[in-house]
Design a protein around this nucleic acid. Structure first.
Length: 502
RNA sequence: UCCUCGGUAGCUCAAUGGCAGAGCAUGCGGCUGUUAACCGCAGGGUUGCUGGUUCGAGUCCAGCCCGGGGAGCCA
């Protein structure tokens, strides 16, 4: 294996020269005297052509024996060819088999989600998943770059914690040398301590929630980025959040064009979000929007368009089903694909029609003091075409450490960033309470064990300052930027209800 | 925990209560600078599990298991 390796993403440098590629057979098509190998090497894919006349018998036999995902080392001349998908292909002169793969389960055909999740370790090799992981990587890199360029220090909060941070959500309990310990649900409180040491910090790590959520937005293990800044108030916090988000989106749009194209991502909304200046609306304004006549009309319109769409789709379905019988092979595949799309859309419409009355009730009957649910967030974001920031929530529904508005004790200085296109909350944060006495009162009100927060209260005894921060959900951000239906595709090995393998 | 939809060949799906099928994948043969290639032949099944109704159950009923979507909770 001492041969110098060339990577597929740098093939243009080797035009009309010999090169050696090492990788896996993504797909193979075979003719009488030609074998077409689609090779993938992690950087991309390249078609390699083995012509029986150009190679000796053992190379030809090796080429014809290849199966999907067999590993090979392949040498040949790199040539430009417009018949090739990425402009270049390889005319093979030598081919060495590293291993012949047996019955690779993920064929280049359709598969259901259950099967794909069971084969997640292999699914990661598929093109869409490959593109998603590269966007995820770009997002991670951009986040680090944004904070590092601004003098933030990355620090790590512990994963084992002795107490539940907010006392609200369900945590994973572990046995820590015969003592109860929980997997962290947030690094925030520790982030505050670290910000008092370094001024501007951010954490970047996994967090865990044991809630039995079965939705497209939830994982039990997910990655969160939590900046915390001393002397920042709520407004400065919101500016930081939107500048970061705009920076990340700009980087992805600039550097991951090919991957977004592979994902068929319509970038209209992303383009609008690459510059900051997102709308900031108060919780009170959000309630007004949700209970407005305009919202009533919007909901009616949603229901009407879905009711009208249904018969149109059913007619199309009947027509192409009729055509299917005598259709040729290629057309048959097209029809089957379209039928699948129609069935999925019809299921969606049915579900929406069931849900719209619930959404309507939730939105139109919303009263000041109620929390905003997932459907409320979606309806709110439909009024805008960039992310929005909703701030100034009722203090009662927020955590004990959140600072209250000095002008209005009922309002907490919290902020959520909601992504457009139905993706909902991607950031939650706010200004923290810096007064020792107020915090002591809140801890008592929330009936939390004051001993557990002794160190946290120390931060208010020794040079307490106003400070703010937020938590960014990495997987939700990836899902939105890639335009994915579910967060399970945004992380290599998702952990969710009932999923611990692979 | 609750609501809702589903589980049939390795995969994707079809089958009025009446002989369990198709396409893909696999194997063999043919054809072609092929693009999810194509054509022919072949092998491949405990219809999620347990029980019930019935002359007869993939289909109907009950319970359980597993999965999809949603509520709550949140990033």
């Amino acid at each position: 294996m001492s041969t110098k390796t060339t990577y597929i993403n740098e093939l243009e440098k080797f035009e009309n020269q010999q090169a050696t590629l090492k990788g896996w057979v993504y797909n193979k098509r075979e003719g009488k005297s030609l074998v077409f190998i689609i090779l993938r090497d992690g950087t991309g894919t390249c078609q390699c052509i083995v012509n029986q006349q150009d190679v000796n018998e053992s190379v030809w036999n090796a080429a014809t024996s290849l199966t999907q995902e067999s590993s090979i080392i392949i040498t040949g001349k790199v040539v430009e060819d417009e018949r090739s998908a990425n402009g270049y292909e390889m005319h093979v002169s030598d081919l060495q088999v590293v291993q012949i793969a047996q019955d690779y389960p993920i064929t280049p055909k359709d598969h259901g989600i259950e099967f794909l999740m069971e084969n997640r370790h292999l699914w990661l090799r598929s093109q869409r998943q490959w593109a998603i992981m590269r966007v995820r990587n770009e997002i991670i890199y951009a986040i680090h770059k944004f904070f590092q360029d601004r003098g933030f220090i990355q620090m790590d909060a512990p994963i084992f914690t002795g107490n539940a941070v907010e006392g609200t959500s369900t945590l994973f309990e572990t046995n820590y040398f015969d003592e109860k310990a929980y997997l962290t649900q947030s690094g925030q409180l520790y982030g505050e301590a670290m910000a008092m040491a370094h001024g501007k910090i951010y954490t970047f790590g996994p967090t865990f929630r044991a809630e039995k959520s079965k939705t497209r937005r939830h994982l039990t293990e997910f990655w969160m980025i939590e900046p915390e800044v001393a002397f920042n108030d709520l407004d400065m916090n919101m500016s930081l959040a939107e500048e970061m988000m705009a920076f990340v989106i700009d980087r992805v749009l600039t550097r991951r064009v090919a991957e977004l194209a592979m994902l068929d991502r319509d970038t209209t909304y992303l383009e609008k979000a690459r510059k900051h200046g997102y709308p900031r609306i108060t919780y009170t304004e959000a309630i007004d929007i949700l209970t407005s006549d305009k919202m009533r009309l919007l909901l009616e319109e949603m229901e009407t368009t879905r009711r009208e769409e249904e018969p149109v789709l059913k007619t199309e379905m009947a027509e192409i089903e009729k055509e299917h019988g005598q259709a040729k092979k290629g057309r048959k595949l097209q029809i089957e694909k379209r039928l699948k799309e129609i069935r999925a859309r019809l299921d969606e419409i049915e579900e929406d029609l069931r849900n719209i009355p619930v959404w309507r009730k939730s939105a139109l009957e919303k009263q000041w003091g109620d929390d905003l649910g997932g459907s409320d967030e979606t309806l709110l974001t439909m009024q805008f075409d960039t992310p929005i920031m909703v701030y100034g929530y009722p203090a009662e529904i927020k955590a004990f450490y959140m600072k209250r508005d000095p002008q209005n004790d009922k309002v907490a200085l919290g902020v959520d960033m909601l992504a457009p296109e139905g993706y909902g909350e991607i950031i939650g944060g706010g200004q923290r309470e810096e007064s020792l006495q107020v915090l002591l009162d809140r801890i008592e009100e929330h009936q939390l064990p004051v001993e557990a927060f002794k160190w946290y209260l120390d931060l208010r005894k020794f040079g307490s300052v106003p400070h703010s921060g937020f938590g960014l959900g990495l997987e939700r951000t990836v899902a939105w930027i890639c335009g994915l239906k579910h967060v399970r595709e945004t992380i290599p090995f998702p952990r969710m209800l009932g999923r611990l393998y692979p």
